[in-house]
């Protein structure tokens, strides 16, 4: 088991948002977590990534058999946990390639493998950029600064391609994307999907799942998973709307 969330209660500013969430993710699987606004989707992503503003009230999260909640956000990342942000942060004055190389080398250092110098890394990055059809001119620009919404999301997936995480949580990666950008991002994710990693797609809408076929769909409402199934559940949900599952919470 790569990730095991057991009876997780968590929230922000003392307010409980996740109220007993359970989830099991194995290597090679793609899970979709769907839910209406306010259901706790983002809270789950942030808690897994280790955002300092979110607090865990009770429950347990095991990652590769280790207590994930005990690990600092940067330790989690070096150990293979990655979150693609819903709203990627702009980092003025730091070039994309500088940033990606540091992230890559930190992971290599952690694995006891060889780090890449800027020239070697540039070649590596050029290859990875093809996955999300990203123009190398973006390498020199400051991280996310002045990027369009679609470019920011592509940049998130580029980071995922460079870092090669074991567990990738894509938080509303489809939000704010036009249809072309959505296709590019989704195809990028499909290329990165493998037997060695697992992906959690956190999304409000079903449309992303037309491009990335999940193995499992979990419906989150009121801080709990209220319905689970295969990819057909997403279609059913699209048809019947979230009110259908909201009824199931009570």
């Amino acid at each position: 088991m790569l990730l095991e969330v057991k009876d997780l209660h968590a929230g922000i500013e003392g307010k409980e948002i996740l109220k007993g969430l359970n989830l099991q993710v194995r290597k090679g699987e793609v899970h979709a977590i769907m839910g209406p606004n306010g259901s706790g989707k983002s809270t789950l992503s942030k808690v897994l990534a280790g955002h300092p503003n979110y607090e865990v009230m009770s429950g347990e999260v095991l990652y590769d058999g280790k207590d994930l909640l005990e690990m600092e956000p940067d330790q989690r990342a070096r150990d293979g946990v990655f979150m693609a942000f819903q709203y990627p942060v702009e980092v003025p004055g730091v070039s994309n390639s500088q940033f990606l190389r540091l992230a890559y080398n930190e992971k290599m250092k952690h694995l006891g493998e060889e780090e890449l110098d800027p020239l070697e890394f540039n070649d590596y990055l050029k290859e990875k950029a093809k996955i999300v059809e990203m123009d190398p001119q973006f390498f020199k620009r400051s991280v996310n600064e002045g990027f369009s919404g679609g470019e920011k999301k592509r940049n998130e997936i580029l980071q995922m391609a460079v870092i090669e995480p074991k567990l990738a949580i894509l938080d509303e990666t489809d939000s704010g994307l036009d249809i072309d950008a959505l296709r590019i991002v989704a195809e990028g994710v499909n290329k990165l999907r493998s037997e060695e990693n697992a992906i959690i797609l956190v999304t409000h809408y079903q449309r992303l799942l037309n491009y990335i076929q999940p193995d499992f769909v979990h419906v989150l409402a009121g801080g709990k998973i209220v319905k689970e199934g295969g990819k057909e559940l997403a279609l059913e949900l699209e048809e019947k709307g979230y009110d259908w599952v909201k009824g199931a919470t009570n």
């Binding site: 940067d74 990342a77 940033f99």
Partner: peptide
Amino acid sequence: FYLLTRGLPE
């Protein structure tokens, strides 16, 4: 937080 989630130490 963004940089930490990319594995950069604090």
